[in-house]
Design a protein around this nucleic acid. Structure first.
Lengths: 201, 201
DNA sequence: GGGCCGCTTGCGGTATTCCACAATAGCGTC
DNA sequence: GACGCTATTGTGGAATACCGCAAGCGGCCC
């Protein structure tokens, strides 16, 4: 898993350096990119952190870059830096899923705090996605019948009732139940319910 | 429980009438208000539906009206109608929790569909709030000890283990467990877990 | 034809939960 | 002092869940 970083994309070197200094003095790891093209060429799906970019960039614009990233299923939070006149553009990006935007001129702390929130958001999203992946891969090992039995277990029904509903014996339900618990790596129906609740939440 | 309605606030009578005609032909119940003041004076906490208002109104502005409503803990979805130049103001409202905004000039269908989504959102929110209320009122009947036992049950632990952890007998845990199930109106730990998961979700 | 898998069912036994009833002690209120 | 509530613990018994082992049947694949 790669180290999290705030990726700063700006075609103005002075601005990049100023932002880097600011972030580093606050302990925020960052990586500088002189253009959307440079960033897009380097980007890897396993990157973590967030992206900070000016909405108006030479070459591929900030918005176009955002669209391309979304097309690549990149979920990194994206923060746009905009001028006052570009707020409608930024709003369009927000509606498309950008994390936030910040208008020039802005307070230094304001941007750093926004970036910190974005990176925390990304860390939490990745953790939650990893959990879901684990649970989903376990669910995938269940046979169709096991899934049926599991759903009824999750409704709080006794094995006897499940047996009646599926027109099988209680012993069969016991056997399925035991295998479901083994495959899902839980020891009780309550643990199973809690695990699947995090999948839905 | 009151009937859901789309509350339209505009100081221009012709616009109010045009919107009403549009909504009614699409089967959307609506109520017209000539000013923020009129609406705020009439507003009741049990109202359902949504609010559609121009961001620039004479007297109390749309934004000010929104702030006042939020101050009164009104959760009705709010949709702002804005001119192109007012988008930054609308964005501020979005960040404060407004449901959405729509820029003039807009397609008739666009607004009606947005209002329908807002009303569906409100209906779902009210339903979820009612459920939470029911569950929370049941939780409130539990004694401190019952809550303690319940938390451990929700971790999937056996009565025997709970007894060891709380330094009480298993029979005491059984008694508490039984009363928790009675008060929460469930018949199993799984049902309880599912019920409380909807509280968190 | 044989092996594997999934589904099914059974046995015997242990552990846990549920149900009903009963009782004591401490605390707070009337 | 009596009453009500909560916490606690116990008895007896029934129902349910869990565990390990065993086995047959049908379908699919090699």
């Amino acid at each position: 898993m790669s180290q999290a970083s705030a990726h700063i994309i700006d075609d103005d070197e002075a601005i990049r350096d100023a932002l880097e200094w600011q972030f580093r003095t606050r302990g925020v790891p960052c990586t500088l990119w002189p253009s959307s093209e440079a960033f897009l060429q380097a980007w890897q799906p396993n990157w973590r952190g967030c992206i900070v970019l000016d909405i108006r960039l030479e070459g591929i614009s900030g918005l176009a870059c955002f669209d391309i990233l979304r097309g690549r299923h990149c979920n990194l939070p994206v923060i746009f830096i905009t001028g006052h006149g570009d707020v409608p553009m930024a709003v369009g990006a927000l509606k498309k899923g950008a994390f936030d935007f910040i208008e020039k001129p802005f307070n230094d702390n304001e941007l750093v705090e926004l970036v910190q929130r974005a990176m925390a958001h990304d860390a939490e999203r990745q953790r939650a996605a990893a959990d879901r992946g684990t649970v989903e891969s376990r669910l995938a090992t269940l046979t169709a019948r096991e899934r049926e039995v599991m759903e009824l277990i999750l409704e709080g029904k006794y094995n006897k009732v499940i047996a009646d509903e599926l027109a099988i014996s209680m012993r069969t339900v016991e056997a399925h139940r035991s295998r479901v618990f083994d495959k899902m790596q839980v020891r009780s129906a309550v643990e199973l319910a809690q695990m699947l609740a995090t999948l839905r939440g």
